[in-house]
């Protein structure tokens, strides 16, 4: 239903061709705030089913990049394409979310006044129209789906508890659970293990690897924790001052003199 209305780009020699076979395609994306360039001609291509980790010092533009992909920020220039030809720069947040892009925020944001169960229920993949939401009734199968997710993120015994009363780490898990309920094709995780204990971090890494295993969805993980990045064992992109500094395996980028300079120099 939505596909008819999606703005697409299909110029023969345009970005559509270059974006062929990608799930996410960013080219020459520039964003500036009051003269400060948060993104400076950033280019990035993600293949379907790929797991990618993104690292970079503070202010490198990681969060701004996610804002651009999810429609929160409009780029000054550049192409942002989803699934080869859907132009994301012309859609708003809810349309992009409906399209199949989910996001976990750096600071966990759950609905504090609702219960854990209700948080997941809202995330459940359903018709998002207002009237359909008004007359929505949870089917037995959907209830089971929520129960399964509760199990998976380890919150089964807290289903009736108010989300606001959860610990920081539990909120992170709940948010990941909400992402799972949405059943998205592209997941953007902004520092998913910030504030977690070592055990929780390990479990999160396992969960992410588990999600990436069947290659049905693509994941972009932004993280500072190098142990965690190593545990994911995925291709790493290093951002610096709003553009890509290096790309490759973790060992390769760690050996890159430019990266060393950015992290250790000055």
């Amino acid at each position: 239903m939505l596909d008819d209305a999606m703005p697409t780009i299909d110029m023969p020699a345009g970005p559509g061709v270059l974006a062929a076979g990608s799930i996410l395609y960013l080219d020459g994306v520039t964003v500036s705030f009051d003269g400060f360039r948060a993104l400076n001609s950033l280019s990035l291509v993600l293949a379907p089913g790929e797991l990618r980790t993104i690292v970079g010092p503070n202010g490198a533009g990681k969060t701004t990049m996610m804002d651009v992909i999810t429609g929160k920020t409009r780029p000054d220039k550049g192409d942002v394409l989803f699934d080869q030809n859907i132009d994301l720069t012309r859609l708003d947040e809810s349309a992009i979310a409906t399209l199949g892009i989910g996001r976990k925020f750096q600071k966990p944001t759950v609905f504090e006044h609702l219960s854990v169960f209700e948080n997941l229920e809202l995330a459940l993949k359903t018709n998002r129209s207002t009237l359909a939401t008004l007359f929505f009734r949870l089917s037995g199968q959907q209830a089971e789906q929520i129960a399964a997710t509760l199990q998976r993120v380890g919150l089964a015994d807290k289903a009736r508890q108010q989300a606001g009363s959860l610990s920081h780490g539990q909120k992170q898990w709940l948010e990941i659970g909400m992402l799972l309920m949405q059943d998205q094709r592209l997941l953007l995780l902004d520092e998913p293990v910030a504030g977690m204990t070592d055990a929780e971090t390990e479990a999160t890494a396992e969960l992410i690897l588990d999600l990436a295993r069947d290659k049905t969805r693509s994941l972009v993980v932004v993280e500072h924790d190098m142990e965690f990045v190593r545990a994911l064992g995925a291709k790493v992109t290093v951002l610096h001052e709003g553009s890509v500094l290096a790309e490759g395996s973790l060992d390769a980028v760690q050996a890159n003199p430019k990266v060393v300079e950015v992290y250790l120099g000055r």
């Binding site: 999810t70 944001t109 609905f111 129209s129 207002t130 939401t133 008004l134 929505f136």
Partner: peptide
Amino acid sequence: SKLGRVMMAVRDAESRVRFLGYSPTAI
């Protein structure tokens, strides 16, 4: 209804609701 819960979600964290695919504008 579920809409009621989305309303409260809009009240508490409107932008988050948007990233879940609901339209706070319509609601």
